[in-house]
Simulated assay, not measured.
Amino acid sequence: MKVTGIGIDLVEVPRIRDMLERHGQRFKERTFTAGEIAYCDACAEPAMNYAARFAAKEAVAKALGTGIWAEGVNWTDIEVVRADNGKPSILLHGAAKEHAAGSTCLVSLTHTRDLAMAQVLLA
């Protein structure tokens, strides 16, 4: 397996909670896919799950070497999905998919009440 990129990001959950309270649906729809919104809103502590997904999107952008809003990559081009057993994975759309050029994207997520972190490996 040839590694082509790695990214990591750490997000403060209170920051995302504040964004959700201040900007609500506008923030959600600009940053997350419909599937991510449905999943997070169904969780007992939505802000923790939104924060983990936010961190994952940042980590993917770092692994791609593009950042968000650069080279056509936007927030919703990167989607965190879950298998039936709960394992997270990344689906890439649009410009993010083009930049990944057929790479496999591996992700690990973790969160507490205060922090959420994601690590991504492109291979």
Rank of each mutant, 00 (worst) to 15 (best):
V3G: 01
V3K: 11
V3L: 15
T4C: 09
I8V: 15
I8A: 12
V11T: 13
E12R: 15
E12Y: 04
E12F: 04
E12H: 13
V13S: 08
V13F: 08
P14G: 09
I16G: 02
I16C: 05
I16Y: 02
D18P: 00
M19W: 07
L20M: 11
R22M: 09
G24E: 10
Q25L: 12
Q25S: 15
F27V: 10
F27S: 10
F27Q: 06
F27N: 08
F27A: 10
K28D: 01
K28L: 14
R30K: 15
R30I: 07
T31S: 12
F32K: 06
F32Y: 15
T33E: 03
T33G: 07
A34S: 13
E36C: 09
Y39M: 07
A42I: 06
C43H: 12
A44R: 15
P46C: 11
P46K: 14
M48I: 11
Y50V: 10
Y50A: 11
Y50N: 08
R53P: 03
R53W: 02
F54R: 04
A55H: 05
E58Y: 04
A59S: 14
A59E: 04
V60T: 05
A61H: 00
K62W: 03
K62C: 05
A63Y: 01
L64S: 04
L64T: 04
G65P: 07
G67V: 08
W69F: 13
A70I: 01
G72K: 12
G72F: 11
V73L: 04
N74Y: 00
W75H: 07
W75Q: 05
T76H: 00
T76E: 00
I78K: 02
I78L: 11
V81F: 08
R82Y: 13
R82I: 01
A83Q: 14
N85P: 00
N85L: 05
G86W: 06
G86T: 08
K87W: 00
S89F: 10
L91C: 11
L92A: 09
H93S: 02
G94K: 09
A95G: 03
A96N: 04
A96Q: 04
K97D: 10
E98V: 13
H99W: 14
S103V: 02
T104H: 12
C105G: 00
L109T: 09
L109Q: 05
T110G: 12
T110W: 05
H111K: 07
T112V: 03
R113V: 02
D114N: 14
A116C: 11
M117I: 13
A123T: 14
